[in-house]
Simulated assay, not measured.
Amino acid sequence: MKYYSIIPSELGEITIQASDKGVTGIWFETFTTKPEELGTRKDDHHVLVEASNQLNAYFAKERQKFDLPLDLKGTEFQKQVWQALTRIPYGETWSYKELAELINRPQAVRAVGTANGKNPISIVVPCHRVIGANGKLTGYAGGVERKEVLLRLEKGK
């Protein structure tokens, strides 16, 4: 069964979705899905409460790492990319090429980019820390403007 909660943030409302195993999704308000796919709203679900607390601490600059159970759904390749994303240090950015090299798939830069774009757990699995090889911000499901704000927050600006 899936549950969800919606919390306010400086970047707009954030929807957090979880199963009894862990967080399954974190999306900004621009994400659209059918309400029946979200599950049951349960603001007091233990995983959702902890995710909310950790996200609030992140936005308050009191947390740099997340310690949440994750229940990722995707292909093995996607999960490998998403796991690699969690290794990008707070306040740093990596290119898609660096990410592809980390998973020992240096020729799979585009596939890594596609998997990165399908990451269902924004912020906690920090796909916002991946930029183009030229140093420019590239697409972000939450919007490039939000990506820029998240990167500035992490760099203390």
Score class of each variant (00 low, 15 high):
M1P: 14
M1G: 13
S5K: 12
I6V: 15
I6Q: 12
L11D: 12
I16V: 15
I16A: 01
I16Y: 11
S19I: 04
D20P: 08
I26C: 09
T30S: 15
T30G: 13
F31E: 13
T32P: 00
G39M: 05
R41K: 15
K42P: 02
K42E: 15
D44Q: 01
H46T: 11
V49A: 03
Q54I: 13
N56G: 07
F66V: 03
D67W: 11
L68D: 06
P69Q: 13
L70C: 07
D71F: 07
L72W: 07
K73S: 11
G74P: 07
G74V: 04
T75D: 08
E76R: 10
F77E: 12
V81D: 09
W82E: 05
Q83E: 14
L85Y: 10
T86R: 15
R87T: 12
I88Y: 09
P89E: 15
G91A: 05
E92F: 14
T93Q: 15
W94V: 11
S95Q: 06
K97P: 00
E98P: 00
E98H: 08
L99V: 12
L99G: 02
A100F: 10
E101S: 02
N104K: 14
R105L: 06
G113E: 07
G113F: 09
G117A: 11
N119A: 01
I121R: 05
S122E: 14
V124K: 01
P126F: 10
P126L: 08
C127P: 04
C127Y: 03
R129Q: 13
V130P: 01
V130G: 03
N134A: 03
G135Y: 12
G135D: 08
G135H: 10
K136C: 01
K136L: 14
G139R: 07
A141Q: 13
G142H: 03
E145A: 09
E145V: 11
R146D: 07
E148L: 01
L151E: 04
R152A: 15
G156I: 14
K157W: 14
